[in-house]
Amino acid sequence: SPQLPSQPPLVLELLRCDPDEMQVQSKIMAFLQQEQSGRGRQEKLSTFSLMCRMADQTLFSIVEWARSCIFFKELKVGDQMKLLHNCWSELLVLDHVFRQVQHGKESSLLLVTGQEMDLSSMGSQAGVTLSGLVQRGQVLAGRLLTLQVDRREVACLKFLLLFNPNVKLLENQAFVESVQEQVNGALLEYTLCTYPLYLDKFSQLVMRLPELRALSTQAEDYLCYKHLSGEVPCNNLLIEMLHAKRA
């Protein structure tokens, strides 16, 4: 990746907050294996149920990431909760989509555990709605790949999602607005100095955010529906987040 001296320091600071991917991967893998070993050999989990568990564990790592982040630490827990309630599914989708960008294969998904999942067999297992969501994710990943999005830009996008000034009833609204502005400015500066020939990269990147939000809303609707029909494993962070936002 490009290493120019003129990179805005804030972008590097945001990148430093990113968790170690391999650490997250092995932690989630170990958790799922331990859970599986506690379950009888006969009780094999469905693909959907396994996906829910992966999403749930990824959410834990997202909360850990947020807690350790510059800016976020300065907020009171009440505001932290409001921000995370608002964007958890967007952060999950971005995490998934950017993993596919790095994976760079259209025929398979790279899961948070490092496992690869063949997409040709997905249709029969997952049903029409989930397959459609996955497909939309692949389209978004394709767009980001075309844009040649890099890790630093994704670090900025995560902050833009987290520090959403449209979240209601924040105690420290002004602070959230100022972080949003600072990160926007840093991302703009970063794209201009790192990709000087690619003048609209910033706006192209920012235009992906509403697409990401639309996809995450659809994914939430789907999860809600599955939850109401009793198919989502209970007592987890995923369901708590779903409740908090929809209640």
Binding site: V77, L84, E240, A247
Partner: peptide
């Protein structure tokens, strides 16, 4: 009425007591 998200609150609150 919003349900309190106890698990999230716990995750955000932990280690922050002292």
């Amino acid at each position: 009425k919003k349900k309190d998200n106890a698990l999230l609150r716990y995750l955000l609150d932990k280690d922050d007591n002292t």
